[in-house]
Simulated assay, not measured.
Amino acid sequence: MASQRIGPGRGGGGGGGALHTAFNMLALSWIIISELLLSAHCLKDLKIFVPEAVIMGNAATLSCQYDLEQAALYAVRWYFGQEEFYRYVPREAKPTFVFSVAGINVDLSKSDATSVTLKGVTRELSGSYQCEVSEDAPLFHTEIRSAHMQVIELPKDEPVMQVDKKVIGVNDNFKAVCTVGPSYPPANITWYINGRMVYPTPLQRITQDAFEGSTAYSSLEIYPHSQVLQGFFQAKYQANINLLCEVSILHVFHKSVQQRIGLSNAPPTTISPNLLGLEGSKRYANGDPDNSALTGASQRCCICCGAAGALLLVMATLTVGHL
């Protein structure tokens, strides 16, 4: 009798073939998707540009540069801290959206997909700004960058310098003070002599006090034989130096004030004893060594008294002779 194959055995073999086919289809799909992902254009090279410092009351333009590689843009969002204040969505009928954030005033005429302009910035707008860019379907790839902006309030007054001497000698102490009105942030003060920055040393003392909302103050004290002055005193034809204090706030504000200070190489002067009346007083044992004028007045008084006595003696003699 001829043998026959059992049906279920053939069916089991068919099930194994279907599983193998499904696995192959899954692998092929994964390869296709991977190829699509690798070849797809996507967002890259996102960079943010925010002014490091801007003067209070001025406009500030913040920009976001990116490369979509021909992919479609979905949205650009701007944040101050954690609060969104501007959004650009190109697929919308009105692509620009402004959200209410305290102190922020967006200039829509100067804002688009890559930049946003703020009008009349105030001190309260100092802080961190973020730009978030998202590409459209199917990936919706999103990147975000942040940067800090400082709003500066300038001092209302010009800097002022005061010096305790207009001429200094090689053995003199010297002090100068430079001040400038309140600013935000407080101003920094730097000292220069003939264009060279003065650094603090034991013989060149620099102090500075600067607090928010108060006058910035800096003093320069120079002692004899300080390094910064030695070369000037040794120079044969150096008659004076130029002292300058520079007031700066970040890179947007620079003001300076300067003075000419004379240099004297003459030795310390001594006062002649004769000018003090000491020479004249030595001629008199009982004279006043501390006041030659007073001694001279006493001499004149004695001379006058002697002349008056002689006149009286002559008149008395004439009177007796007449009698």
Rank of each mutant, 00 (worst) to 15 (best):
T215M: 13
Y129W: 10
Q150V: 12
Q65R: 12
A187N: 05
I55V: 13
E246T: 02
I48K: 03
Y217S: 14
G321W: 10
P273V: 12
S115I: 01
I33R: 06
A307L: 09
I32F: 05
V160A: 09
V163Q: 02
L278N: 08
Y66W: 00
K119L: 08
V89P: 00
C64G: 03
G81A: 06
L38S: 14
N242M: 10
P138N: 04
Q4D: 10
E84A: 10
F233L: 09
T295M: 01
T122Q: 10
Y129C: 05
M161P: 02
L294K: 11
D136Q: 14
A285R: 04
P182F: 07
H20E: 05
M25Y: 05
L294P: 01
L38N: 14
Y284V: 09
R87D: 03
K282D: 15
S111T: 12
A310V: 15
F232R: 11
V50H: 02
G277C: 09
G7L: 12
I31T: 09
P182S: 15
F85V: 00
H20F: 11
C64E: 02
I6Y: 04
A308C: 07
G277L: 08
L62P: 01
T207K: 09
A93H: 08
N105Y: 04
V98P: 01
L38Q: 15
L19W: 05
N194P: 10
N188G: 13
H41C: 13
N24Y: 01
L318H: 10
L220C: 09
G81V: 08
P267W: 03
E221W: 04
A75M: 13
N173C: 06
V177R: 00
Y88I: 01
F211G: 11
G321R: 14
A235C: 12
H41Q: 11
L263V: 07
G181V: 08
A137G: 10
T117Y: 00
L275P: 02
N58W: 00
L275V: 05
A210K: 13
N188E: 12
K156C: 04
N105M: 06
A187G: 09
F253Q: 02
S264E: 02
N291M: 06
A285D: 07
Q4F: 05
K44S: 12
G13I: 13
I271P: 01
E132S: 09
R77M: 08
T317N: 06
P155A: 01
S111E: 05
A18W: 08
C301Y: 00
L36H: 12
S214V: 03
S109N: 12
G262Q: 07
F174D: 02
D288E: 08
